[in-house]
Write a protein that binds this DNA or RNA. Structure first.
Lengths: 333, 333
DNA sequence: TTGTACGCGTTATCAG
DNA sequence: CTGATAACGCGTACAA
C-alpha cells in the first residue's frame, strides 16, 4: 500500500512531459529568453513595452511555465525556501499557529516554508545550508551560540523567535498576579524538556526576579516531565509538607499546569481551592478553567511574519508595539 | 533581538569566502572536473586509478568541498531532499519519533528530511514540486486522491504512512479485548480533528466490524474535540443515561482517552471501576494506567525507513513482518 | 581520463 | 527606450 506511484523515466520516444521552460516561452512568444526573464521578474531597471509584456505573460501562463527552482537557485545562490528549525515536532499549539500563519504569507510571495528537525549532533547546521540554500532561517525557540555562528557559512538571514515574546515578563506576570492574590510562598513547575530549555530558563528567571522585587521567598522549583506523570505527582508531594506551606504554583506552561490539575483532581484536590495554579500560553485546552498568561498568537505570528518578510526583502522590519501578553483570570487562581 | 546576523554581499575586493567548487578541486588536484565527479560519486562503470582517487578525495576534503546541491539538482532533476507532508505540526509522539528515525537514516545517506505543512487550498501540491524537487515524498497520515494524483507532475516517488499500520486492526483489537472482559455495550470517542480523519475512520470501522462479528450492538459514537473539554464532558454524559448502560469506551487514541480519564476523575469517577477505557498508540503519558493498543514505534519507524530508502534506491522494499500492534493491559480496563 | 555539451534562469553588455 | 546576445553558476555524463 505504501508505494502509490513511482515515475519511470520516459524512453526517448515519449513526447517530453517536462513542464515548459523559459526558453519554450521565449520561442513561443518570438522573443528572447532575456526578455522573458525580465517580464517574469518584473525587473525594475528595464523597460518593456506593454505589448511584449502581456504577450509573454499570456504565453507563459498558457504553457503553464513554472520557473525551475534549482536553476534559479544555482544562479542566485539561494532558493525560495524559508527554513524553520525545530528541536522536535511536538511543538504545541502556538508554534503550529505561527508556522501556519508564516506559510500563508510566504505562499503569497512565491516562497515555501519547510521545517527541519535539527539535531546538532546528527547533522551540523553547516552541512544543511548547501543542501537547502534557504533565503531565511527561522530558529523556533532560539539557537545555541555555535549553531548560530555556523549560519555565517550561508548567505541566509538568520532569525529567531527568541526575543519576540518576552518570556521573563511571563514569569514575572505570573508571580505578580499571585502576589496580588495574597500568595507569598510559591512552587514552580519547571520542564525537564531539553528542547524548551532556553525559554524555560527565561520564564523561571522572570519569576525569580519578581519574587525578589516583591520581597517574597524564592519559588520552590520542581523539575517535571510532561511525559511522566510520576514526576508531576512527586512535584506536588514535594510542595506539601512544609512549615510555611506553598499556596500557589506557577507552571512553565499550560500543558504542565493542566497535568498538575489532572493529578490534583485524581487526588480529590481542586485547583483554585486547595492550591492556586497559574499557567502560560493560553492553549485551547486551558480555556475551561486555567488562569494563565496568554500569548496573543495573532500578534505573535504577525511579528514573526513581519521579521521574515523584511528579511526576504532585505530591509529592517517595521517595529510594532501591539502588546502580546495578557493575564487571563479563570478559576484555578 | 530577532535579527542575529544578516550577511552582506562582499565587495569585489573580498577574498571569496565561497566554498570550493568541484572545479577548484580539479584544479588543485591537476585532474579534470569529470574525474572529480566520478570519484566523488563513486560511479560504478568507470575505472579510476587508486592514486587519482585518493588524491581527489584528499584534495576535496582539504578544500572543504561540498557539492552544490542546486547545480546537482538542476542536472539530475531532483534534489537530495525527502519531503514529509503533514497537515499540522501537532502531530504527536509517534509521528515525531518516526520523523526522527527517518532523518537519522537519511543523514547517513546524504539526504535531508524537510517537513511541509500543506494545505491544498493554500498552495496546491503541484506548485510545491518545482520549488523543492524532492526525491521522495512521504505523506504522513495519507493523502487525498486528487493530491496524490498531482504527484504525477513530479519525478518524485510518493509514499504514504497509510497502510503501514493496520488501523482497522487497532479498532478491532480494542473491541475484542473489551468483549473478552465481558463488556457488550460500548461507547466510542471519535476525534473531530480533520487532520486525522483517514486514520480515525479506519479505526472506527475496525471497531464496528468487530462488534458485528462478535454480535454486539454497534458502539455509540461521540465526536469529541481534544481542544475543547466541553465536548468530552458531553460525550461522557451522553453515554450514561441508557436503558442498557454503556460499560466501556474505546477512544480513538490515548490522548482522547487521557482527556476522558481527566474529566472522569474530576467528577469523582475512576476509569476501570466506573467505566472501562481503552486507548490506542501507547504514548508515554498513557503509561501510568491506560489500557491501550500499543504501536511499536521502533517497528513502525523501521518500516517507513525501509520504504523510503528503497524508494531512494529505486528498488522494492523488503517486506518485514515484525508485528507492530500489541495490546497492553493496565488499570483502566 | 579528458573535453565539452547540457540542464535553466539571470544579468551585464551591446545593437538598433 | 526596447530588445537581443552571450556568459555565468556548478555538477554530470556522453563521446572521444
Amino acid at each position: 500500500m505504501g508505494v502509490v506511484m513511482s515515475r519511470e523515466r520516459n524512453g526517448a520516444k515519449a513526447p517530453r512531459a517536462r513542464p515548459a521552460t523559459s526558453a519554450d516561452v521565449a520561442r513561443a512568444s518570438g522573443v528572447s529568453r532575456a526578455t522573458v526573464s525580465y517580464v517574469l521578474n518584473n525587473v525594475s531597471n528595464r523597460t518593456i513595452s506593454d505589448a511584449t509584456r502581456s504577450l509573454v505573460l499570456e504565453t507563459a501562463s498558457r504553457l503553464g511555465h513554472v520557473p525551475h527552482a534549482s536553476a534559479r537557485s544555482l544562479r542566485l545562490g539561494h532558493s525560495n525556501v524559508v527554513l524553520a528549525l525545530v528541536r522536535d515536532f511536538d511543538i504545541g499549539y502556538i508554534a503550529d499557529t505561527v508556522l501556519e500563519g508564516l506559510d500563508i504569507e510566504l505562499a503569497r510571495r512565491g516562497y515555501v516554508l519547510l521545517v527541519h528537525r535539527y539535531e546538532e549532533s546528527l547533522r551540523p547546521l553547516n552541512e544543511l545550508w548547501p543542501l537547502v540554500w534557504p533565503s531565511v532561517v527561522v530558529a523556533m525557540g532560539g539557537l545555541s551560540l555555535p549553531a548560530a555562528a555556523s549560519v555565517q557559512d550561508s548567505p541566509a538571514t538568520l532569525l529567531s523567535t527568541q526575543g519576540v515574546v518576552n518570556h521573563r515578563r511571563i514569569g514575572a506576570m505570573q508571580v505578580e498576579y499571585l502576589h496580588g492574590r495574597g500568595h507569598t510562598h510559591l512552587g514552580y513547575a519547571y520542564p525537564r524538556d531539553e528542547s524548551v530549555r532556553l525559554i524555560a530558563d527565561e520564564r523561571l528567571r522572570g519569576a525569580r526576579e519578581a519574587c525578589v522585587k516583591l520581597k517574597m521567598p524564592a519559588p520552590v522549583v520542581a523539575e517535571v516531565d510532561r511525559r511522566d506523570v510520576g514526576t508531576i505527582e512527586r512535584a506536588l508531594a514535594g510542595w506539601e509538607p512544609r512549615s510555611t506551606p506553598i499556596t500557589a504554583v506557577c507552571a512553565h506552561n499550560d500543558e504542565l499546569a493542566m497535568l498538575l490539575m489532572g493529578v490534583m483532581s485524581a487526588q480529590g484536590l481542586v485547583a483554585g481551592r486547595d492550591l492556586a495554579l497559574i499557567g502560560a500560553d493560553d492553549i485551547p485546552l486551558a480555556r475551561t478553567g486555567l488562569t494563565t498568561v496568554a500569548i496573543d498568537t495573532e500578534a505573535f505570528t504577525a511579528r514573526i511574519v513581519a521579521r521574515v518578510v523584511a528579511a526576504l526583502e532585505r530591509r529592517e522590519p517595521t517595529r510594532t508595539r501591539r502588546p502580546v501578553l495578557k493575564l487571563i483570570q479563570r478559576s484555578s487562581a
